[in-house]
Design a protein around this nucleic acid. Sequence first.
DNA 1: TTGTATGCGTTATCAT
DNA 2: ATGATAACGCATACAA
Lengths: 336, 336
Amino acid sequence: MTIKEIAAMCGVSRGTVDRVLNHRGRVKPETERAVRAALEQAGYTKNIAGRALTVSRLAPRIGVVLCCLDNPFFDEVLKGIAQAEEELQDWGVHVELRLLRGYDAAAQRAAMDELRACAAMVIQPINAPEIRDGIADLAEQGVPVITLNTDLADSQRALYVGADYYRGGLTAGGMVNLCCESGARLGIVAGARAILGHAQRLQGFLDALDRRHQILARMDGEDEPACIYAGVRSMLKRHGDINALFVAAAGCASACQAVLDMGMAGKIKAFGFDLVPENAAMMRRGVIQALICQQPRRQGHDAIRAAWQLLLNESAAQENILMETSICILQNMTDA
Amino acid sequence: MTIKEIAAMCGVSRGTVDRVLNHRGRVKPETERAVRAALEQAGYTKNIAGRALTVSRLAPRIGVVLCCLDNPFFDEVLKGIAQAEEELQDWGVHVELRLLRGYDAAAQRAAMDELRACAAMVIQPINAPEIRDGIADLAEQGVPVITLNTDLADSQRALYVGADYYRGGLTAGGMVNLCCESGARLGIVAGARAILGHAQRLQGFLDALDRRHQILARMDGEDEPACIYAGVRSMLKRHGDINALFVAAAGCASACQAVLDMGMAGKIKAFGFDLVPENAAMMRRGVIQALICQQPRRQGHDAIRAAWQLLLNESAAQENILMETSICILQNMTDA
DNA sequence: TTGTATGCGTTATCAT
DNA sequence: ATGATAACGCATACAA
């Protein structure tokens, strides 16, 4: 079914059908009704190839707003974005990046506003009212917004691309079950309370853990390398019999450094998240046994592709894209 | 750069440039040379959106030939193919399947010949001269051939989509290192000698294995459930102190069944490949500790998408697509 | 051997 | 308020 055929069915011109389809107004109500009926009855959907040809001429920009500076995890996300951009440049698509430092909602909102002329937007949202409002505004303008890595569930975002944090925690717990036959005596670095993902990881971890393990110590509320380093040192000093560490926060390598500096390498098995270079190094040195990974490359890549998909097919509501929860050990490390 | 612009550059018509581009002949040699020079100099590549519009009207078929019946691994591959087909049907693409039983080169060649009118072909090739020839014929006709799951390296195939078997073996070895702290006493089911992937897995496994483990027994040349079951039974009877099994072949669940039937559950940790339903069940029962997976869904999906990519961009030589080597344990099982 | 005309489906523009 | 027409880039049938 094409616009042409619909037009013929109704005895109107393509232009009229186009005005109805794209809500341009200037159509007599009864004509509009007739056209809508025909569209409905014929089950019309835009031809995606024709649309791609047109869209490519518009050179649409996909805006990307990330709080990623000084965060090695996002180096990988950016690689995925760059790869998707390369794939899509043949389709006339461009990516415009706004990379921020830290978590400042006002700054993020400002970046969003700067990019409001984009055709679609990918954002790692801060949980704040102005961001929620910004997303709503964009959605109303017809600009689809995709949340990346962090969701903002009760917002007008089109879909979420990212990890399943709870399952990540579960999987980490499963690895402890497998790797600590004789029972783990655990120290836990729980991560920042404010970061929902960290809390979900911890919950999953605890849910997966076998009875035979015990938790000797737990540190809360930290997501800073220096704090984690100091915290783990004192934790190990107080509990000399700890033989496993679970780090839900981002600074697993700092925790490992504390282990090394206290001469406890080989006695403690560490489990953490994300194959960033520091963690890879600690895995090579034998401190980290396994990392649970959330496929940062693919997150970036898939978010951009999903944006393009929405540009081509404005109507089709897409589902969330959850990364597989992958386990990385020494032998299947590929990059970093 | 468009055909139109190239034509203008050379002072010829679009039609002439088209004839040069698509090797239709009927062009004066010196004209052709001039056009080629212009194409080269301008770095012309076909506009992908324009090409997609044209290609979609041709309703191209992608032929798929798999030796997959009675092989649960391929049920997942087929799901990936079906998903890709759904994504691409908007682009006018259709998939035509030829599903064979067993490994009969003549039958496979016949299926290929049946599909020779396709625009592109995806095949899980048997290592035989007639298949190699068939691929060469298709390539000569301009039909790109993609090898799926099994490669046929010195053939005219455009690219390979599948697993890195050696790394899969390495990773399995790594899991044994992690899960058998006190040293594994291994029984190995090496798989069929004729299947290159099995041999590569075994090599990787042995390369990764720590010194502290020992190999007590090894079964060669089997890829049949019944043989594996019987073989593992007798292996366990001879070596009562085996505490770990590595199964490179497809029938890991049969090996586990032997373990269960001999009342040795809980004493033996099994490691195998592929999250097929039988293996999932054995993982839930605690016999299998970890499975190394080669992402069958994605294999099917990516092969079809790669085929489409080649249809759009005939010239661009694509690189092989290797699956990530993923580790599946109880907690990160998603399907099956 | 070469050029011209037309079509694909969507969108933008310019008349009416 | 509506229709006619041109444009995107590729492909092809047909005319010269």
